[in-house]
Amino acid sequence: MSLQPVSLIVALSLVFAASIQASEPVTQEKTRMHSSHIGNKPDVEDYDTLNYIGLDKAKQQLSVFQDKSKGVYDKYLYKKNVPYGLGPRETFDHFHNPTFNHKDTRGVFIFIHGGYWQGEVKESYAFIAEQLLAKNIDVMLIEYDLTKENVVDGKTIPRVSMTALVNQVGRALDTLQAYMQDNNMSGLPTYLSGHSAGGHLAALWKDHPVVNSAVLPISGLFNLSPIAATKKIGAALQLSDNEIVKLSPINNIHPANKSSLPIYIYYGGDEQPELKEQTLNYAGKLQEHDYRMTVTEVGGANHFEILTSLFTEPDSDLIKRITKD
């Protein structure tokens, strides 16, 4: 699967989503503060992140992601499209920095891309790996099927249900666990992260046994109910009432125990208000259940810029959390 203009067009035909606020207790006052629309864009439908940002600006940011990602494939050692299932998109990519010996790898960072579960490809997000690879952290990018029929690289990708998509990611994590065992990587610090729809998937699979260090949702979507009600994003998802309840991370939080991992949540200061509210509500629910967690607002960052801030700046909060000695 190569980087093609089609993947950008797919991305631009959809729209993304997100949320976040600093590492202090989440209060109901903050949640209310972020629940109303900012007055300067009242005509943009809820969760229509692309139009909220502006099409031209979003297109430019996505193009930069693709260009930077091509450089990562050129510079680093990788295994591409390792299968975890029978479908053409049931694959992951494994990146390693060839300047380090495999036996000295310090950890594994698993990343799930966004696209409102309806578009995008993992290849456009390889740029998130560079700073981690420089610190000898291997990176795994998970691909998955879509909840809307699309054409990617000239091939038609049939629609799958949200339930099937979620189960795919679970199989990917199962396969990664076996893959790491087969490649002498078992026991390494392993982190699970995702952006937007990927943040939703990371939150749903936060308790998977392959993850042993932390979960880091970025601008995630944690409650499917208000998204399902929208025309532009929600209608295409075709979510059943059962899926809305069962597959919303906010409904799947059990009291934390000694094996519960820390959860570090990020959102952009310039995200849509309803996306901020998603994060703040989820963070509040985690607090109620005694999770070790922080919620951090990345000031001045929109839904795409947050990835640049977190992954390309060597001293970002996320990079320091993953690479600390």
Rank of each mutant, 00 (worst) to 15 (best):
Y47W: 11
Y47M: 08
D48G: 04
D48T: 04
D48H: 07
T49R: 06
T49N: 14
L50T: 00
N51Q: 09
N51A: 10
Y52R: 01
I53T: 02
I53S: 02
I53F: 08
I53V: 11
G54E: 04
G54S: 08
G54D: 03
G54A: 10
L55Q: 03
D56A: 10
D56Q: 15
D56P: 06
K57Q: 08
K57N: 03
A58V: 01
A58T: 07
K59P: 00
K59D: 01
K59T: 10
K59F: 13
Q60K: 15
Q61Y: 12
Q61I: 11
L62M: 05
L62W: 12
S63M: 14
V64L: 15
F65I: 02
F65Y: 05
F65S: 01
F65R: 04
Q66M: 13
Q66P: 02
Q66I: 06
K68L: 15
S69A: 08
S69K: 01
K70D: 01
G71L: 14
G71V: 08
G71I: 06
G71K: 14
G71A: 14
G71D: 04
V72Q: 14
Y73I: 03
K75H: 11
K75G: 05
Y76E: 00
Y78V: 07
Y78I: 10
K79M: 13
K79S: 06
K80R: 13
K80W: 13
K80F: 12
K80P: 00
V82T: 09
P83K: 12
P83D: 04
Y84L: 05
L86R: 10
L86H: 03
G87I: 09
P88M: 15
R89W: 15
E90P: 01
T91L: 08
T91V: 14
F92S: 02
F92H: 02
D93L: 15
H94V: 07
F95R: 05
F95Q: 06
F95S: 04
F95C: 08
H96R: 11
N97C: 10
